[in-house]
């Protein structure tokens, strides 16, 4: 086990530990903070894989964007200091079953798959390569999904504006 492996296990333990804390704590704000730490751990994992761009996107989108939105909605809706009600036995059993099933499925798939022993092809994860691939209309390019996602975001933006817009009522004399 060399240095890199030790780091892998450290990061993995960190992600799992904070993830378990996120679902087991009974204060909702703390749960979101643990989720945040877990997501940062995943970003660290991407850094470990030398995928810097992906890691930075993970931090910017999930940590800086989505968790902040979650925290804002908690601030606006919940009595954040209170402890939430304990989960019932039935719910606990089903949750445990669901996670066990998910774990079993993943483990099964991983053991079925035969990983090639010699991965000679280096992955070019530089920002230039990602950019050209993203806007490449030819083979191996991702222009169509990219544009489709941008349409989705645009429609979400327009929806927000429509909801937020004040419609002036016709003035009646």
């Amino acid at each position: 086990m060399d240095f890199k492996d030790i780091f892998f296990y450290l990061i993995a333990i960190y992600i799992l530990g904070t993830g378990i804390m996120a679902v087991s704590t009974r204060k909702i704000f703390r749960a979101s903070i643990w989720l945040l730490f877990s997501l940062i751990g995943i970003a660290a994992f991407y850094f470990w894989l030398n995928l810097e761009f992906l890691a930075a996107v993970q931090v910017a989108v999930y940590v800086g964007g989505i968790v902040v939105l979650i925290i804002f909605s908690i601030f606006l809706t919940q009595k954040t200091g209170n402890q939430m009600a304990k989960t019932g036995t039935q719910q606990t059993i089903f949750a445990a079953l669901a996670s066990l099933l998910g774990f079993a499925l993943t483990a099964y798939l991983v053991y079925q798959h035969h990983f090639g022993s010699n991965q000679t092809q280096e992955l070019d994860a530089s920002i230039e390569n990602i950019g050209t691939q993203m806007l490449n209309p030819g083979d191996g390019g991702f222009l169509l999904p990219f544009e489709a996602v941008s349409m989705l975001l645009l429609s979400a933006l327009i929806g927000c504006i429509v909801i937020a817009m004040k419609i002036k009522k016709e003035e009646t004399a």
Partner: peptide, 25 residues
């Protein structure tokens, strides 16, 4: 001196708001 230098700074600095939200709450 990593490949995504400036983007790294923008991404990480977006996290600092979490510390402030945490302190406030």
């Amino acid at each position: 001196d990593l490949n995504i230098g400036v983007f790294f700074i923008t991404a990480i600095s977006s996290v600092s708001v979490i510390g402030i939200l945490m302190a406030g709450w």
